[in-house]
């Protein structure tokens, strides 16, 4: 009896394995085809000096493109910008998103209304968000100047680096905070009520309960939210394209890459930048996982 059970079990598991591979293969193949294949192509092109406007002059230059990019102040400035945007927006979103999540968690009325509303920024096209905020900050057609105290009515937000960055980050934060709030709300639901009650009975203050009970229990949700949003913010492109087109040094690393490839048709150095961008995303992801000790199993949703 025991042998036949084992045989049947291993038969079944072999069958399961085969079925699983069949089911998984098309999606995995396609994912690799649309990302790994172009990436390899980029790697190849990055060794050439190659401009689409002078295709006959394509020549092999080895690692020159990487040397040019990595020794160029512009590359580092734009990387700095990108990291700055990532850190500020994720930090602000985390705080506001947590506040929103707390409110939604406590809310006993109009839950549907709030959840519907909060999905609207999430669903709105980033380009539309960019335009809405660009016009809102505009000194000729906007309303921000007249609503903010201490800001003169003809203050031009898009005239300097600092204020342009504020406008870009406001648009980014507005659109993505709801996503953060919803992830954190789901995390809040995981905090055991009885632990909170016990802490209350023990006389813990609100602040103590937040730091000792709520946040530690939400750790997984927070870390996953931070990881996703940080990598998303690192790719920022749409808002910058729409709002400043890179003026006042507000370029991100994605924008720089786009400009080399699509506007200047410099496929060689552009491909080198594409490879560097990809590598830098890996580095950022690695750092976040290490520094915040994100459990990748959480991210992969493994129980």
């Amino acid at each position: 009896m025991s042998t036949s059970t084992v045989n049947r079990a291993s038969d079944r598991s072999r069958g399961e394995n085969r079925l699983a591979l069949k089911l998984v293969a098309p999606a995995v193949a396609l994912m690799l085809l649309v990302t790994a294949f172009p990436m390899l192509r980029a790697l190849y092109l990055s060794f050439f000096s190659y401009s689409l406007t002078a295709p006959d002059e394509r020549e092999f230059v080895g690692l020159d493109n990487y040397a040019t990019a990595l020794t160029d102040g512009l590359f580092w400035r734009d990387t700095g910008n990108t990291v700055f945007i990532m850190v500020v927006t994720v930090a602000v979103e985390l705080v506001i998103g947590f506040a929103f999540a707390m409110v939604m968690h406590r809310l006993v009325f109009a839950r549907g209304l709030v959840r519907t509303s909060i999905l609207i920024p999430y669903g709105i096209i980033t380009v539309v968000s960019g335009f809405a905020w660009q016009f809102a900050f505009s000194n000729t057609n906007g309303f921000v100047n007249s609503w903010l105290p201490f800001v003169s009515s003809d203050f031009n937000w898009f005239a300097s680096y600092e204020s342009s960055m504020v406008a870009i980050m406001v648009s980014e934060i507005w659109k993505t905070t709801p996503f953060m709030a919803l992830l954190l709300l789901a995390g809040l639901a995981q905090v055991p009520e009885d632990m909170l009650e016990a802490a209350k009975v023990d006389g813990a203050t609100w602040w103590q309960r937040l730091w000792k009970v709520i946040l530690p229990n939400m750790r997984a949700a927070i870390m996953v939210a931070v990881l996703f949003r940080a990598l998303d913010a690192y790719r920022i492109f749409d808002n910058i394209f729409v709002m400043t087109a890179g003026a006042n040094n507000t370029e991100s690393i994605s924008f720089l890459t786009y400009r080399q490839v699509i506007e200047q048709f410099q496929l060689g150095i552009g491909s080198a930048l594409s490879v560097l961008l990809f590598l830098s995303v890996l580095v950022v992801a690695f750092l976040i996982v290490k520094i915040f000790r994100v459990n990748l199993a959480d991210a992969r949703q493994e129980a």
Partner: peptide
């Protein structure tokens, strides 16, 4: 003009 740094033919 206040929008000097973003001025174009129309502004």
């Amino acid at each position: 003009q206040p929008d000097l740094t973003t001025s174009n033919e129309g502004t």
